[in-house]
């Protein structure tokens, strides 16, 4: 008791700091992870999943439908949540995503929107997050370029 009285100020600072650290550690509404490390699956393309792969997934899947279009949750017997992209960080949706045990799949007609949401959620520490795409790698150029051997640039 005497010790507590002597060091009450230091102990108070320590307790407050510990509380702040714990809050920061377990809080999912701030960015605290190493950005490059969290973004790595996007460079390796391990964050992409096709409809075929999705149907073969085992375990509970949370399908986040980010637009009007997208596959139906009923078809796969999994939980589907329709959510407007700009509402994704609303606690009722974010809590559901954070507490999801199985994979979370982002489904949207526009890959650009899925990519942006994926990066934001991933940087918040949400793992097991995938983007549903039509192709295994949408970043492959399918267009052919025909060179014009007669033209030369003005260098």
């Amino acid at each position: 008791m005497k010790l507590l009285k002597q060091y009450w100020l230091v102990l108070l600072i320590l307790l407050l700091t510990a509380a702040a650290v714990l809050a920061r550690t377990f809080c999912h509404s701030i960015f605290k992870y190493d950005a490059g490390r969290m973004a790595k699956p996007s460079a390796l393309k391990t964050n992409l999943i096709t409809e075929e792969q999705l149907s073969s997934l085992k375990g509970a899947v949370l399908l986040l439908n980010l637009g009007e279009t997208g596959i139906s949750g009923d078809k796969h017997g999994n939980f589907t949540m329709k959510v407007n992209p700009d509402s994704i960080l609303v606690p009722k949706y974010l809590d559901k995503i954070v507490s999801q045990k199985g994979p979370v799949i982002l489904s949207c007609s526009e890959n650009s929107v899925s990519a942006r949401i994926w990066m934001v959620l991933t940087q918040l520490g949400i793992r097991n997050l995938f983007i549903l795409t039509a192709d295994q790698d949408p970043e492959i150029l399918k267009k052919e370029f025909r060179p014009d051997t007669l033209s030369m640039p003005e260098l």
């Binding site: 060091y7 700091t17 650290v21 509404s29 960015f31 605290k32 950005a35 490059g36 992209p85 934001v120």
Partner: peptide, 29 residues
């Protein structure tokens, strides 16, 4: 000793090389 412990605790979340600096809500918007 107590102050050192406090400092270590305070710096723990900053061990990441670099994390996003924007607030999530603002970044999303």
């Amino acid at each position: 000793l107590l102050l050192s412990l406090s400092l270590i605790l305070a710096l723990l979340p900053l061990t990441a090389n670099r994390s996003f600096t924007e607030k999530p809500g603002k970044l999303l918007s």
